[in-house]
């Protein structure tokens, strides 16, 4: 009699252990919660924006920021950089998660050509982008090319090299940074896959995490990080 009760107890114990294990496997396989990886720290910087005022990485804390790199003398179509940024900014309000949450968003275009891209030149671009999209835009650069190289090359790990003919050879890149200053997405210029839709989708994933990362739900999100449940 007793042995049957004890074995019943062990059946239950095994069932509980099995359920926990299966739950963990299911969490990893089906990924009910998906997140963007916390890749690495975005650089600390202080640059000068299109109004001639300083813009630092600290000033952008608490905002989700999409960075890109560009220069105004870049021969058209210049990898479609500004059109891509504009597309993302325009369609951001159509991302359901972004509509539900009120998350401050900024778009930062870093000019790789401080000699020619003065605040006056950048001002016109910033005004136009703001008028077209209604979002917050910063067109920034640093007057000292060496400092700029540290920020962009070492910090954002984006390659660029000014050429003798006045053009700049560079790797087009979009970088999504969260409110804690952590890089959450890096996007190369792609002609096959639509970079812009991928960025928009990732804005949604990040917004959902920011909104739900409180109380018990926070544990689920941290588990998603731990189990590497990354959004495609």
């Amino acid at each position: 009699m007793s042995s049957r009760r004890v074995s019943l107890f062990w059946y239950v114990a095994y069932a509980v252990i099995g359920a926990v294990f299966l739950g963990a496997v299911a969490f990893k396989v089906f990924q009910p919660v998906q997140v963007l990886p916390r890749v690495r720290l975005a650089p600390g910087f202080q640059m000068v924006d299109h109004r001639g005022t300083p813009l630092s990485s600290e000033a952008l804390r608490g905002q989700v920021v999409l960075f890109t790199f560009w220069y105004s003398h870049c021969p058209d179509p210049c990898f479609d950089i500004l059109p891509t940024m504009e597309y993302v900014a325009r369609h951001l309000d159509q991302v359901p998660e972004m509509r539900q949450a009120t998350i401050p968003v900024a778009f930062v275009v870093v000019s790789l050509d401080p000699a020619r891209d003065t605040p006056e030149v950048l001002q016109a671009y910033a005004r136009e982008m703001k008028a077209r999209t209604g979002k917050t835009w910063y067109f920034v650069t640093h007057p000292d090319p060496e400092v700029l190289k540290t920020y962009v090359g070492a910090g954002f790990q984006v390659y660029y090299e000014p050429q003798p003919d006045g053009t700049i050879r560079f790797d087009p890149r979009y970088i999504l940074v969260d409110g804690w200053g952590i890089i959450r997405g890096e996007y190369k210029y792609e002609t096959v896959v639509s970079t812009r839709d991928r960025i928009l989708r990732h804005f949604g994933v990040l917004a959902r995490e920011i909104q739900n990362s409180r109380g018990a739900a926070k544990l689920a999100y941290e588990a998603a990080h731990l189990f590497l449940c990354y959004a495609p």
């Binding site: 650089p43 600390g44 910087f45 990485s57 600290e58 070492a154």
Partner: peptide, 9 residues
């Protein structure tokens, strides 16, 4: 500082 996300001014 830049690489570790540290701004200073």
């Amino acid at each position: 500082a830049t690489r570790y996300g540290i701004f200073y001014n």
